[in-house]
Simulated scan of single mutants.
Amino acid sequence: FSFLVLVARLRALIRRGAPERPVTLVVGSLRLDPTTRRVTRNGQDLSLTAREFGLLVYLMRKPDEVLSKAQILDNVWDPEFRGGDNVVEVYIGYLRRKIDEPFGLNSLRTVRGMGYRLSAD
């Protein structure tokens, strides 16, 4: 490849800019603002740990998609993490207790043998 062509293409991409992502992620009544690190459901603030927040961001960026434990580990946990994939089940349980159970909802579902899906309530 030509280095000059590569530089020209990179400059063109920079000029175009990245597509804007919505500032606030919304799935049903669940709202997450990544800039303020605020999570609410039905207007009620929810308190999440840093790992729970990262997991929820990943799930909310891919609503209604079935995400495997491997995908979640690759995108939420550190690449140097050497533990088992059971940690995903544990944190999914923590999230369910905070975002679903107090509201009588079941938006974070297990898809048997495949992974997890976050859907609108």
Rank of each mutant, 00 (worst) to 15 (best):
R16V: 13
G43F: 04
R82E: 06
G43D: 05
G113T: 06
V5N: 07
P63H: 14
L30D: 10
R31N: 05
Q71M: 14
S2K: 03
Y116R: 11
L13W: 04
K98R: 13
L46R: 04
A12K: 13
P34W: 11
L59I: 04
D33N: 15
D64E: 14
R15T: 13
T24H: 04
S107I: 01
V5D: 09
V7D: 03
G93I: 12
W77R: 06
V90R: 15
Q44E: 12
S107F: 01
L95E: 11
R109G: 07
F3C: 02
T110P: 00
Y91G: 02
L48A: 06
L48P: 05
R97C: 00
R41I: 07
M114S: 12
V90I: 13
D33P: 08
R37M: 04
G43V: 07
D64N: 14
S107H: 00
G17I: 02
G84E: 12
R31L: 04
D33L: 07
S29P: 07
S47E: 11
R37S: 02
G113V: 07
R15N: 09
R16K: 14
N75L: 03
V27C: 09
R112N: 01
L95F: 09
V7F: 05
R97E: 12
D78K: 15
R31D: 01
F53G: 00
G28T: 11
L118C: 09
I92C: 05
V27D: 04
G104N: 06
L4A: 12
G54F: 01
L13R: 15
R37G: 04
S47Y: 03
A70F: 05
L95A: 06
L59W: 08
A12W: 08
G54V: 02
R112Q: 09
L73D: 00
E20F: 10
R9S: 02
R82G: 07
P19A: 05
R82H: 06
S107K: 09
G17V: 07
T110G: 02
F103A: 03
V76S: 13
E52N: 06
D100W: 11
T24L: 07
Q71F: 03
V27H: 07
M114A: 13
P34F: 11
D85W: 01
P79C: 10
V39G: 01
I14E: 12
V87L: 13
M60E: 03
G54L: 10
D64F: 13
L10I: 10
D100N: 13
K98E: 05
G93N: 13
R112A: 05
V76D: 13
S68N: 08
V66L: 03
S29W: 03
P34N: 10
E52K: 06
V90D: 07
P63D: 14
G115K: 04
A18L: 15
L32H: 05
R96K: 15
F81W: 15
A12T: 11
L56P: 06
F53R: 00
K69A: 10
S47H: 02
A12V: 06
V26P: 01
D100F: 08
K69R: 14
L30V: 08
L13G: 13
V88R: 02
P63C: 10
V111A: 06
R11K: 12
V7N: 00
V87C: 01
K69M: 01
L4N: 10
R51F: 11
